[in-house]
Design a binder for these strands. Structure first.
Lengths: 332, 332
DNA sequence: CTGTTAGCGCATTCAA
DNA sequence: TTGAATGCGCTAACAG
């Protein structure tokens, strides 16, 4: 088939090289981001040819040859928690800023992960960021044919680096705040308890309350959602309960709405209310919930720093802790 | 270098074929998702070998050979609007359900798109879903070396299919509702007016109000955010204004908080308040805002249907309209 | 049904 | 500095 009959398709490096009158190797070097030996005039010709043809390098082919794809996978259970909104937009922006693209993988309840493995649908990526609860590093490594796994779900295994929020710190501050305000008894509303992060939170609350002599009246199992907080709030004995600690802001919002008559003008009348994650919604007037959270910019910066490390994540497994703090608002 | 000295690396198809004692082609066919002619026993041997080696196909190589990568790009300005939470989790799940992976691209204010083009960082994808305001189909096509562009940002160009919410319908219902309740004058709070979608919304509101004899007292320019609604609410003359229509629920939430004294028990006392997008947050007790929106499942289903169409999106440009409806709640 | 061969588009040896 | 040749891992076309 001669050129005239060739179907219109994307120009390749060969086309550029042909138009510029150089070899493919020269064209490749001229177009490379790294400095490569090419004479000035040939470089010029190649660049012009590429421009004229509207040439776009094929990332797949480049990745195959390079074994570096500039692709990062983010594994999540889902993205419908309110706190996700604050985090992922920032994370996405920062990862793109270092020249990588983000492939989002939603593994749902957790069983689906096995499907990914079996079907081999997963991409070969430079690194995998694991927010999903279930996943252990080994599974994720197999999933992505890659050792560069960054654990962000509270697990920290010897082989893989991790960035974890030091939630204990913020929890202690919040409980101390309650104790200082005379709280003697409290209820704890929890989320999905199978999660490592959640278990750590619960343990921290228990320890801090014990330390401050606050009686733990009970633990009610929710699922982080507004609806679960709204429903569980019915079980709160407002006369006996000094404070309600929730492991998500959304649950605290549900509690607040259920008992809003006790928060006239948002001043705590019966019990104090504490949320978790310090989501931006707590800045809305209707939900002035005292909360616990880390500086998201700091958290994301730590993740990106590890991602950007030339050595890669595989070798030395660094475990980074990001500080959280108590953020007082009207309810706490 | 003999096998003993070969560095430990990912097993390839060749390794599987060797272990199974078949050719690479047979191994490839046995591992293929599509039915391919392979004898039962060889297929069995290949599967076992793959299992034993922990073989994972390299999607890059497969894509290169196939020219089909099972990758879909989603272009957004950002993902921090409350309405994004409802949409993208569902969309992600549904796209994965048809065996494709999602690469999220955040183009921010819009200038960054040019950077993507220049740097050629964009991946070769099967299709691009364009939610970002700025982008025209031609730019996106160049960006992804691909003609399969699905416009979801309100633009519908001849070359590219689109799925658009028929917002006019819901807006007419909402305005009719207000008129029926005796509203004679109204204010409109708008978002980023450069967006095609937003311009259409504004036009619909104007037309509907004209039709129902509702005087448009003014248009206040916000940015879809709670904060902008909260701030602009100061300019509302509660004595002269029968209703406030907002082009986002978040702005309506801001208005509600600013004037909450006029909504005791959420019963509209002075003016009626209408939001937009019907986000799930309007189901929270504190923000019972009447809104306008489409069935998200329907909307996503239309998108996935087009994505899944064997013919591809390139040829026939289908323009799908998804119905919106007025959803009355306490404020409207 | 099977194996051989030839690419996909690119980066990188290695001689020249 | 250049260009021919090689290979990344896989699938498709072809012949057997």
């Amino acid at each position: 088939m001669n050129d005239a009959l060739k179907p219109a398709s994307e120009p390749t490096l060969s086309d550029v090289a042909a138009l510029a009158g150089v070899s493919r190797a020269i064209a490749s070097r001229a177009l490379s981001a790294q400095p490569r030996p090419v004479s000035a005039d040939k470089r010029e010709r190649v660049l012009h040819a590429a421009e004229a043809l509207g040439y776009r390098p094929n990332s797949l082919a480049r990745g195959l040859a390079n074994k570096t794809v500039n692709l990062v996978a983010i594994l999540v259970n889902h993205i419908h928690d309110l706190s996700d909104l604050d985090l992922f937009d920032l994370l996405l922006a920062e990862i793109q800023a270092i020249g990588k693209q983000v492939i989002f993988i939603r593994v749902g309840a957790g069983e689906d992960a096995e499907d990914f493995l079996r079907d081999g649908v997963a991409y070969h990526v430079d690194a995998a960021l694991v927010f999903a609860d279930f996943a252990d590093a080994a599974t994720v490594r197999r999933m992505f044919r890659n050792n560069a796994v960054l654990m962000l779900n509270g697990h920290h295994e010897p082989g893989a680096p991790s960035v974890t929020m030091d939630e204990d710190q913020g929890i202690r501050e919040a409980v101390a705040d309650a104790a200082a305000k005379g709280v003697r008894s409290a209820l704890l509303l929890t989320g999905r308890s199978m999660s490592r992060v959640e278990q750590a939170r619960i343990a921290s609350f228990r320890a801090a309350m014990r330390q401050h002599g606050i009686a733990l009246l009970g633990e009610l199992a929710g699922d982080y959602s507004y609806a679960s907080g709204r429903a569980l709030a019915q079980q709160i004995d407002v006369d006996a309960t000094g404070a309600v600690f929730c492991t998500s802001d959304a649950m605290a919002m549900g509690v607040l709405d259920a008992h809003r008559r006790y928060f006239p003008g948002h001043a705590p009348e019966r019990f104090r209310l504490y949320g978790f994650d310090n989501i931006s919604l707590t800045q809305f007037d209707a939900y002035p919930i005292s909360s616990i959270g880390a500086d998201k910019r700091d958290y994301v910066a730590q993740i990106v720093r590890i991602l950007n490390r030339p050595a890669g994540l595989a070798r030395h497994s660094e475990h980074v802790l990001v500080a959280t703090r108590f953020v007082p608002r009207l309810t706490g």
